[in-house]
Design a protein around this nucleic acid. Sequence first.
DNA 1: AGGTCTTTCCTTTTT
DNA 2: GGAAAGACCT
Length: 721
Amino acid sequence: MHKLLQGLNEKQKEAVLKTEGPVMAIAGAGSGKTSVLTKRIAYLIYEKNIPIQNILAITFTNKAAEEMKDRIYEAIGIYSREMWISTFHSMCARILREHIDRLGYDRHFQIIDDDDTKQLVKNLLKKQNIDVKLFSPKTIRDMVLKAKQDNAYLDGIEMPLKDVVATTKEKYVAYLEESNLVDFDDLLLLTTRLLKEHDDIKAYYHDLFQYILVDEFQDTNDIQYDLVKTLTNKDENIFIVGDEDQSIYAFRGANIKNIQRFKKEFSHPHIVLLEQNYRSTNTILNAANAIIKHNQSRIPKNLFSTKGEGEKIIHYKGPTARDEVEYIAMTILKHVQKGYDYNDFAVLYRANSTSRQFEEVFMQKQMPYKLFGNTSFFKRKEIKDFTAYLRYLINPDDAFSFLRIISVPRRGIGAKTVEKIMDYAGEQSLALSDALNQADNYLSTRQANNIEEFVTMVNSLQQKLTDEPIDNIIDALLNDTGYVEMLKKDDKGDVRYENILELKTLLHESSETYKEFNKTEQLSFVLEDIALKSEETKEDVEDGVTLCTLHSAKGLEFRVVFIVALETGMFPLHQSMSDARALEEERRLMYVGVTRAKERLYLTNASVRQTYGQTNQNMDSPFLREIPEDYLDYEGYVQKRTYYQQSDRSHIKAKEQFIAKRKETLKTYTENTLNKGDKVIHDTFGDGVVVSVAGKQCVIAFSHGVGIKKLLKDHPAIKKK
DNA sequence: AGGTCTTTCCTTTTT
DNA sequence: GGAAAGACCT
């Protein structure tokens, strides 16, 4: 027997050895899935002599990709950048950097993140004079993105809303294309389009990717499924791993049915069931099974373990959330004294915001910790400002970045001037940089001078970027833009400054990886990394307690796991309480959490907790009740558990009120039958006369110095007199 | 235009 | 409770 196969059970061996044709492994939690994936890759390389660049392995999160690279390095002693092990999005970015010009984009396209898309949609709504209080930018953004994936989505939307989404979508798509920006979905959509529309490129990748592996297939959405299908060549040497019980990304479009679809649409996949769990004790595994059994929509599985019964699961309930955190800290310290490492512990929570208290207490007790998914770093204002500056240096026609930086710090150019610039660029069909260069033509001398100064500054910064080491650009930005002066006036200036220095370090380190490219390209790649890795993983602690969300805990395992804030409203979130499907997803998340534990599992919560600065009393999470008493022990001050009753509808009330309110506002958004010459009154602009009507738009001349406005005809603020 | 005060949103989860 | 956007004043 080959030594690669040592320690694998029969099913696992089957999954490794069946290299040809489609294979689908249904892998329960802890069934050695990652091990199978890495050994399969090793087997392909060593036994089948497949060149490494001909293997494509796709994961969902950066962490999973990193993990797989590490494991492959362990198994075969090599990892090279030629190997395609990456997330869906990184893979697409890599392909697009090579070929996106075929779709009419520039290869230096920039990736914008979720916050940016929200901001952009908000700007677009405002430009159409749509009240962002009536139509929340976030909701519209979500709908725009869905419509972008599938135009038919629009058909299901009610009328006034449908119009808003449809027009905003058009503008959004056009805007991104003009500014050479792509969003996360575009990475997937454009790659698929590239392959479908260009046979030579498809042939190239079909030839390149002889063997494809996709992890966590239950989390693929429809675009990703389509992409995988398009990437697969006629040999169909594709291996997918999935577990329906661990599908936790439905909120971003993951479709569990894709597993079934794979079974039908690929030619007779070989199916392997991995049901032996190598991770957890039977107590933990049985509890997990008991919980997941409450889900209606699932295919029953039969997970078993040979690890023995193990310790009971402990439910701790404290009087306050603070007590809960203290209890966990003390419990960890107690175990560490008995010989556990800090690395053996994980604190898992539903929402990132929960991490804060743990950080405070751990810091105070000088306990080392690793905070995963600290999304906040790249979302901080100063970091967003700087990445916008960097993007703008690469592409001075990037209007989106321009809007972000033009008055940060203030440089005598206000909203009105910016509007003039944008209008001019629009009317003359000019690129932003050209419009700026012609500022003399349409701006007052003072404004034109300010703009000229800005342009000169940008030019000199661009020069510095080419002449000097890449991380010098951060200092140049700090000084030349006046940012550092601005920070001096800011209460939190010193913290922000520290963060900018951290960005500088990051720029320095990651540009090393791209040494062989020119400066602009280096910067471009680093910005791409930043965009695609929302997480800043603090790896500076060798041995530390892991703090992370249940979502990012998927694929990881720990000797001791704490699942915290197990309260109705916190986990499951109250938004999910009234929706059976959402509740099932929360339950799968609970299942994922429980199955992370190898030896000990602590489930904790508190009677009283502060949320949004308000003190709340929460009920115990229904998931606690789903664990048979035999597996549980109690600790803590509060022994009594309280559960939410069906009759108690207080959680749902808020949501119902919200829906009712929205319906009410939508009702007022009725169609105006405006004609030329009609006298109207507008909530903010006052009296006016309709000058013209074209489609959904109309032009109204207002009195009292407001002037002429182009508005949506049906806007509720407009009433006919 | 720009600074300060007030209000609002937020905490779902990831790329 | 805290950040960021908006309202309001200079």
